[in-house]
Amino acid sequence: MTDMNLTREAVRAIPDRLEHPARRALKSWETLLLAVAVAIFIANSFASPYFLDPWNLSDATFNFTEKAMIAFAMALLIIAGEIDLSVASTIALASTAMGAAAQVGVGTPGLVAIGLAVSLACGAFNGALVTGLGLPSIVVTIGTMSLYRGISYIVLGDQAYRGYPADFAWFGQGYAFWVISVEFVLFALFALLFGILLHATNFGRAVYAIGNNATAAAFSGIRVERVKFILFLLTGLMSGVAAVCLTSRLGSTRPSIAMGWELEVVTMVVLGGVSILGGAGSIPGVVIAAFVMGLVTFGLGLLNVPGIVMSIVIGALLIAVIALPRLWRKWRG
């Protein structure tokens, strides 16, 4: 076969990589963020003598574990080019459902199942509207953000559910061992699971491909709508996990539960280096971003800075992490 020879002649070896992955990681956003986290940690330990106490540090993790668990799923969703602004309202609805069930004496396993099922249904509804009807996810989830929390308000009004079973408190108040809380263990577990899902599976690769070029991904035989639907399900499900933890930690449900969390979750994801336009980002980045936000909140708390000021810091962070690289590129031409 002369033809084969013809191409074989021209063969040249193409190296897999020019740069070792470890070397590249060193120059990444995640490394920079890690340095920031360490700096804040050191600054905090100087700022307050109470900071380095293991129990205080353990308490501090509650500032971010629940939000971070949603952020892992949200990161995948944003990488795929969609967004879910209804996550906090999903928490409210799931928590309300659990509260209502607790009133009629449902036990802890039943409550968890109900919370997860409701949040999964919320995610499925978002996903069906976005992928089934081809609607823009921003508007759909602004709508369901009102709808889900609105249902909580209809059910609860200005009332609150209390009276959760005693063993339900384990999720949000329990400790796995020593100072390591159950929530922190869940956080670490889901970080690992989502990290593997995004970085080591076919599914994760499809997520990146869709976010970078959904048309080309579809032309490559990827079932784009199905992947997106699954991502909405996962985001709903993780909101449910957060709902279980938060409800368990607070021991009560009001319709205003987790108000404004969608912003903090999106900020965490973007701070973690996920491109808001889709196609790029990593779970380690989101994990570090969770620690950064938790440490900032905790540090400001130690300095008696009120919560709303922290939200200014978070809003400014959100804009700054996107604006600064762009400004930098503009200045350098």
């Binding site: 009120p306 000021v309 809003g315 996107i322 762009r326 503009k330």
Partner: peptide
């Protein structure tokens, strides 16, 4: 000027403006 997606900009300024009202 910075070509930041409007949803991100206004989610951010939403908290900043309200926070400023508190300050």
């Amino acid at each position: 000027k910075l070509d930041i997606p409007p949803i991100v900009v206004t989610l951010g300024t939403m908290t900043i403006y309200r926070g400023t009202a508190f300050l």
